[in-house]
């Protein structure tokens, strides 16, 4: 069943098609019940969506300029804690900058890096994995041995060394984070392909003279993409954490625009007198990663045929 159908059936927004167990039964459950049944996915999706909207609309929805300083209100605590006028929802930092605005704007860099890096990882990993799984033999060996070698090297250490050498620009970070994640996707799609390529419709396509490229991308890929999508959503969270770690270490994107990791790093000197400087960016990181993981878990449950019927 195509993935979109599976998702819609999973959300109880469409009836199960003919031939599937439980087909034909009308889904008469209320929206609330459906949301409750899929609550993990809903929570994860809402969190992701909230940050995505914040990142897209950031400059237009921030209450204050994220880089504007206000030296009359350094370290102001959140207004709901201190009731100090002008303190802001999440308070102010050491230079009087609004933390809420900076968290929203900070999400841009993190999400851009995460989406781009995961996309590069999927593109490169899926392509190489498809080729490896279809061609087998020497090509498969070479690709998989390169993957093994990369897996053996501690990725974060390698990334720190590379970025320290080449500089922490946005492009460098996206490129290297993306290239670092291809291995997992390659292995997944290759694993799926090893079983799919033995199916009748693949043999039929081969018999009909379809080219290798067509078979790989038209027949094998759509049917093997499910675990890749789940892995992508889970890897999204880990890329955000890695980007935050690099920013914390001072190897992140060199810009005046705040990033979450940089906000946490800059607040280290004030942690004993102004806890809110480091906590709120850290909570933002946590919520995005949590959202990505919840959504990924839900996606895995929905797309896994062995769990059919249990949740729905």
């Amino acid at each position: 069943m195509p993935i979109l159908n599976k998702l819609l059936v999973g959300l109880s927004l469409r009836d199960k098609p003919e031939g599937i167990i439980g087909a034909g039964k009308k889904n008469r459950r209320s929206l609330g019940h459906r949301l409750w049944v899929n609550r993990m996915g809903v929570v994860g999706g809402v969190l992701m969506l909230a940050f995505l909207v914040g990142a897209l609309l950031g400059p237009w929805i921030t209450p204050h300029d994220p880089v504007a300083i206000d030296l009359s209100r350094p370290f102001a605590k959140p207004i709901w804690l201190d009731m100090q006028e002008g303190a802001g929802i999440l308070g102010k930092d050491n230079l009087g900058r609004d933390i809420f605005s900076r968290v929203i704007v900070g999400s841009r860099t993190s999400l851009i890096v995460a989406f781009s890096a995961v996309s590069i990882g999927i593109l490169s990993g899926v392509t190489l994995g498809l080729i490896a799984g279809y061609k087998r033999g020497l090509v498969d060996d070479i690709i998989m041995r390169v993957a093994d070698t990369q897996t053996a090297i501690p990725f974060l250490v390698l990334l720190i060394a590379v970025i320290a050498f080449l500089g922490g620009s946005l492009m460098n970070m996206i490129l290297f984070l993306g290239l670092g994640s291809w291995v997992g996707f390659a292995r997944l799609i290759r694993g799926e392909e090893l079983s799919i390529r033995e199916r009748d419709y693949v043999h039929a396509a081969q018999a009909l003279g379809a080219s290798d490229l067509r078979i790989m991308f038209r027949h094998i890929l759509p049917n093997g993409l499910q675990p890749v999508i789940v892995a992508a959503s889970l890897s999204f969270g880990s890329v955000i954490l890695t980007e935050a770690a690099l920013s914390f270490l001072g190897l992140g994107v060199a810009t005046q625009i705040p990033t979450w990791g940089k906000m946490v790093a800059d607040s280290r000197d004030y942690v004993t007198v102004a806890w809110h400087l480091s906590v709120f960016p850290a909570v933002a990181i946590m919520l995005v990663v949590l959202g990505a993981n919840l959504f990924g878990d839900w996606l895995r449950d929905v797309l896994d045929p062995r769990l059919k019927g249990k949740r729905l």
């Binding site: 880089v67 001072g250 060199a254």
Partner: peptide
């Protein structure tokens, strides 16, 4: 030092000067 330079850069940004700062160790 870093806080001072960040603050100066922020106030220069307010008049339209786009500061591109590097922070060598």
């Amino acid at each position: 030092d870093r806080s001072l330079l960040d603050a100066v850069a922020a106030q220069w940004s307010a008049i339209g000067v786009n500061v591109k700062m590097s922070y060598p160790e």
